[in-house]
Design a protein around this nucleic acid. Structure first.
Lengths: 212, 212
DNA sequence: TATTGATAATAACGCTGTTATGGAAACTAA
DNA sequence: TTAGTTTCCATAACAGCGTTATTATCAATA
């Protein structure tokens, strides 16, 4: 059957392209991690992969499209970092641990964190859809907050609202820390974050763990 | 007197250079404000001023040196924004107002804020000394906190510590807001920040305004 | 087998920060 | 005044950036 041969070829082609695509993203990813966002240029990616820049443009349209994929990888890593947190039964401690895991993700994957939540690459600004995907990586935190305000009205909206307040706080501590503003400050950044979190959880989730 | 003529010329030269220097910074500043950090290239600055890039390099060494000066201008604007806050007698409200003034500075001077506290220009990273200057722009906030914990031990260290925690929180809210993460979130960013601040001040400064 | 179609490398365009070159103007010294 | 030296600055260049037009190659069709 001629058509079978053709479709077989087509399938092989598709698979090859998929592998190439993943290979490119792997190389771009290690470039990002090992040498920072500044090293993430189309030419360097092409050199690392061993192809011309043309391939990158036919495959991802432009730099924005390529980095979009790295953004998604960052979302995965963040989600997995939160999933790795064991639920200690105590909701307060759990929320606490989720926030510290978020910080762990940020410090352990500074370059991913930077392209997701800071504007370090002039050519890249996450689209509205991707901003939403980024937020949704925090689902576990939102769920924990949902659990801790169960019984109240408009749990869904309130949970997201509180999550965003906590998120912003954690983000702010990380942002200033990464900029270097907390070097030589006497107190460890983590301790400062913990103090802020304690205050926020106490005030925003006053009914939490009262039955434990 | 030959030497007088010479020195007079030297003085005139110096003054001329100072004026030129300020003119360059004025132009760079308006370029930054009107067209954003991406428009802040050495060539565009030179074109706007009406000189060659060589002048910029003899005057500021490099782009880092030029933006250092804009960083200082940003510090001035921030300090003045805080100084413009009237002290309402109530310390809690004052700290509150200072934080909102900080947010006002950030939103009203997004480009200055970005080069100072976010990493939007790959070629610019504030040095340790400038990071310190940036922090010191928050002196009024630190002083307010100092006033509200007077009587305790190690007021100086504690005040800075609490100030940094509050600062990080405000910064985080602004950072996510500027990235667009709070668009379509239902609750206004300012309200979210206010809730966070209320929680922080209540918990970190429990003795505040008890005598009023 | 000749032709069409996709694929990708080369080279180019207009940017960027930075620097070497060359010339003009001004100060110094005879 | 004149010759030499120093200072200043614009032009042009270099390397690198994102992006695209050109061109050649090579498999699929008719």
């Amino acid at each position: 059957m001629e058509t079978n041969k053709v479709t077989n070829f087509r399938v092989a082609q598709k698979q090859h392209q998929q592998k190439l695509r993943q290979g490119i993203l792997d190389d771009a990813s290690s470039l990002l991690v090992q040498e920072g966002p500044n090293a993430l240029t189309m030419r360097r990616i092409a050199d690392t992969v061993g192809c011309s820049t043309t391939v990158l443009y036919t495959m991802f349209s432009n730099k924005q499209g390529l980095i979009d994929e790295l953004y998604l990888r960052g979302c995965d890593i963040l989600r997995q970092s939160l999933e790795a947190v064991s639920h200690p039964g105590n909701l307060k401690n759990y929320i606490y641990a989720l926030c510290l895991a978020y910080r762990g993700f940020a410090l352990g994957n500074q370059t991913y964190y930077s392209i997701m939540f800071l504007k370090v690459i002039p050519e890249y600004t996450p689209s509205e859809a991707y901003l939403k995907l980024g937020q949704e990586s925090l689902e576990l935190l939102v769920q924990a907050i949902r659990d801790s305000i169960t019984g109240e009205q408009e749990v869904e909206d309130k949970a997201w609202e509180i999550a965003r307040v906590i998120w912003a706080t954690v983000h702010g501590h990380i942002g200033l820390e990464l900029m270097g503003y907390f070097n030589y400050s006497g107190v460890l950044p983590q301790q400062m974050l913990e103090r802020a979190l304690q205050a926020l959880i106490n005030e925003l989730l006053p009914t939490i763990d009262k039955d434990q």
